[in-house]
């Protein structure tokens, strides 16, 4: 039997695509669909006699009434807004700094990425020590040897929350910086030269040339950071376990507790699906904005 050239090419293309597709289906689509499936059932590991009855959207209705879920949603949103805001700002500063040429720039660029390369669990542990009430570095910097003045940063709801924000900003600003740096590097030098000839001040150059041209990069950094911040878990797990007074409880941590500690597979999955939907909506929104902008430029 013989195939036409076109048919053969189709088979070839399909063969090349299959492994990648299988990978995505197994590791992305299947878990997502399975979570959705679980979220529509009532499954309590501690009571197997319950079986796994289908309950429709019951779990979702329960989620709407769940005081703790609402509280952790607010915490999560607050965390997302503050961290992404600071991270973009710090990232911008980092990017501008390491875009200039100076001696040792290579080392500086590498060094700035170190926080991002450290596993979050490790850096969270480090920050937990820094904020420690008895031997923490932060207390030492503020109060030196006056140990009576030492503050228990992680013991107060507001400062504990600030602590996880700081730890996250420290860790991921450089990632935002890296993306923005990529945006900076494609700006042609002629634009600045022309601006200088026209007598534009450095501030004007920044506002009128740099900022508009790196907007797409900033948006991409924002997208990555927002979606990532919604999934915050390890920081909370290591630093505070959601306390004190539940002030650092975030959605993903709450969902984790439901599934792994309490054995509420169905309800816990509902929380995960909820986080997934939020991330999806946010991503679609950003992609639309970024997409049209890039399109218009072309």
């Amino acid at each position: 039997m013989r195939f036409s050239a076109a048919a053969r090419e189709k088979v070839f293309v399909a063969a090349l695509l299959t492994p990648g597709l299988l990978f995505v289906v197994t590791f992305a689509f299947y878990p997502i669909l399975y979570s959705v499936y679980l979220s529509l059932h009532r499954i309590v590991l501690g009571i197997p006699s319950l079986g796994r009855p289908f309950t429709g959207i019951d779990n979702y209705l329960r989620l709407l009434e769940d005081r703790v879920a609402l509280h952790s949603l607010i915490n999560t949103l607050l965390f997302v807004f503050t961290t992404t805001g600071f991270e973009i700002l710090c990232g911008l500063i980092i990017a501008i700094l390491i875009n200039r040429s100076f001696k040792g720039r290579g080392i500086a660029r590498a060094a700035i990425l170190v926080p991002w390369a450290i596993p979050t669990v490790v850096s969270s542990q480090m920050w937990r020590f820094i904020f420690n009430d008895k031997y923490g570095l932060l207390n030492y910097i503020f109060y030196g040897n006056d140990t009576h003045a030492y503050t228990a940063w992680l013991a107060h709801p507001a400062t504990a929350f600030a602590a996880i924000v700081i730890a996250d900003v420290w860790k991921t600003s450089s990632f935002a910086g890296l993306i923005i740096l990529a945006g900076l590097q494609v700006i042609p030098d002629e634009l600045y030269r022309a601006a200088r000839i026209d007598g534009a001040s450095p501030w004007q150059q920044f506002r009128r040339i740099t900022l508009p041209l790196i907007k797409p990069a900033i948006l991409i950094a924002l997208l990555f950071r927002t979606v990532d911040a919604f999934r915050v878990f390890d920081l909370v797990f290591v630093m505070t376990q959601g306390g004190p007074a539940d002030s650092t409880n975030v959605l993903q941590f709450y969902g984790y507790k439901k599934i792994f500690t309490e054995g509420l597979m169905g309800y816990g999955s509902t929380i995960s699906v909820f986080v997934f939907i939020i991330s999806l909506v946010v991503s679609l929104l950003y992609i639309r904005v970024v997409g049209t902008r890039l399109f218009r430029e072309k």
Binding site: G46, P244, S247, E262
Partner: peptide, 21 residues
């Protein structure tokens, strides 16, 4: 109770809130 972990999480939240303020 076999659902102790769930009960405990509620207790933890309550106690932590109660004594933190």
């Amino acid at each position: 109770t076999p659902l102790y972990p769930a009960v405990s999480n509620i207790l933890q939240r309550y106690f932590s809130t109660a004594i933190s303020s």
